[in-house]
């Protein structure tokens, strides 16, 4: 079943930077897709067009049967609740507690007033604690987020995305600020979510080896254009160099 369809997507920023030009691909339910490419290739832009954090200049995006590109505010809100997002810098409210940050994932389902005063149901709170337990953060629930390590913060970010009950998670370089150990823990959790819960996942990754290891499918982007779309197995050494615009032997791939 197709969950996401991107058709002739283009984005030109004010000032004339063409970040994406004529991008086409679709993602099926349950897929684990990694987008790789050099810095400035347009990976973050592409990810943010999917939940309309950035408005595309041209083309169409259909998510779960709904066209996201010209959607009204109310429907956009509904679409966003179905898409979890995980960031390189975790993007938590550092001065609030872990549990409060996790519950932020429910805001999209609440009336404005309920959200302002932070009124959550018992069921939501229980779900939040269950997720923290699953992610190994049971004892940190009442800690302030600025007291956590990077790896712990990213797990809070994951819990915040999961409590949304998303159909899709978008991860923009989720391990770029973490050490190898914490990176592995995070990637394993995210893979688990994909396999066990069947949540479709789209990743921006800098590490080719990580992308190869975890993904069902890899999309290679250079200068805003897709130049590879296929399985990790079919991704040849030359193709990697083409994606990164480098000569053979110049890259650190392991």
């Amino acid at each position: 079943m197709e969950l996401l369809n991107i058709n002739r997507l283009s984005k030109e920023y004010k000032g004339g930077t063409k970040a994406l030009s004529n991008v086409n691909f679709s993602v099926n339910e349950g897929e684990f897709v990694s987008i790789i490419g050099p810095s400035g290739a347009g990976k973050s832009t592409l990810l943010r067009c999917i939940n309309k954090m950035i408005d595309a200049t041209d083309g169409e995006i259909v998510f779960d049967g709904v066209s996201v590109t010209d959607i009204n505010r109310k429907d956009l809100r509904k679409v966003r609740t179905k898409i979890g997002m995980i960031f390189q810098h975790y993007n938590l409210v550092d001065r609030l507690s872990v549990i409060e940050n996790v519950l932020h994932g429910r805001l999209g389902y609440k009336t404005t007033l309920e959200g302002i005063i932070g009124k959550y149901t018992e069921k939501e709170k229980k779900k939040a604690f269950d997720l923290l337990k699953k992610l190994g953060l049971k004892d940190q629930a009442y800690k302030r987020c600025d007291q956590l390590s990077g790896g712990q913060k990213q797990r809070v970010g994951i819990a915040r995305a999961l409590i949304q009950n998303p159909k899709l998670v978008l991860c923009d370089e989720p391990i770029a600020s973490l050490d190898p150990n914490a990176s592995k823990v995070i990637m394993d959790h995210l893979k688990n979510i994909n396999v066990e819960m069947g949540i479709t996942s789209i990743f921006n990754l800098h590490q080719v080896d990580v992308a190869m290891k975890y993904s069902d499918r890899i999309i290679g982007v250079n200068s805003g254009e897709i130049i590879y779309d296929g399985t990790p197995d079919n991704l040849s050494e030359e193709k990697i160099h083409e994606i990164y615009g480098s000569e053979a032997g110049e890259l650190i791939t392991e």
């Binding site: 609740t81 979890g84 938590l92 932020h104 805001l107 404005t112």
Partner: peptide, 19 residues
């Protein structure tokens, strides 16, 4: 950064401001 994350969850303007 936190505003970006809350916007992505579908939070409304005043929810983002207060939370």
């Amino acid at each position: 950064e936190s505003v970006e994350a809350l916007r992505a969850t579908g939070a409304t303007y005043f929810q983002i401001v207060f939370q």
